[in-house]
């Protein structure tokens, strides 16, 4: 690591730099032309959270564990008639509201991790910017739509 600190003519460093930029001038830039060409995010990318309403049991674990409390859940109990005649009627939790405010969300993924019933998934989708900040609050319908974009998990490096 011997670095020459001298500053004297013939300024070889300056000309070397010129040569470097000249070479770069004729190189192909790695630009991705975004709206026309899209970079495909890795499958694990934390883009947007999707919800499987079938699996959700309104246990509120995600809302409770969220560090910035951006998940809003409301639900009520419902009587389900007995499946066989003579059986006991059961109560089931029914989801009324499941909103995630992506303006508040910090994309930590804790909600996905704590969900005990596989109701939440990460999708690498990222194109959901809005003109109004209020529109970033995604209701159940939008969260369910994201479910189609959840990719297959990547293969693992064999070790």
């Amino acid at each position: 690591m011997a670095y020459d600190k001298s500053i004297r003519p013939p300024f070889a460093g300056l000309w070397k730099g010129m040569w470097a930029t000249l070479k770069a001038l004729f190189r192909r830039p790695p630009t991705v032309f975004y709206p026309e060409e899209k970079e495909i995010p890795v499958p694990r990318a934390r883009g947007v959270i999707s919800l499987d309403t079938e699996a959700c049991t309104v246990c509120m674990l995600c809302a409770r564990e969220c560090p910035d409390w951006c998940i809003y859940i409301e639900g009520h109990k419902e009587e389900v008639p007995p499946s066989k005649p003579g059986g006991r009627p059961r109560t089931r939790a029914k989801l009324d509201r499941f909103d995630i405010d992506f303006a508040l969300c910090m994309y930590c993924g804790i909600c996905v991790e704590v969900c005990p019933f596989d109701a939440l998934f990460w999708s690498p989708e990222y194109e959901y910017s809005e003109y109004s900040i209020a529109d970033l609050l995604h209701p159940v319908e939008r969260l369910t739509e994201w479910l189609d974009t959840v990719p297959e998990p990547p293969a693992l490096e064999s070790s």
């Binding site: 000249l22 770069a24 004729f26 830039p29 630009t31 032309f33």
Partner: peptide, 13 residues
């Protein structure tokens, strides 16, 4: 344009 290409960019397009 020249600055863009020297910096691995495209520049105005």
């Amino acid at each position: 344009k020249i600055s863009a290409h020297m910096q691995s960019r495209i520049g105005p397009y």
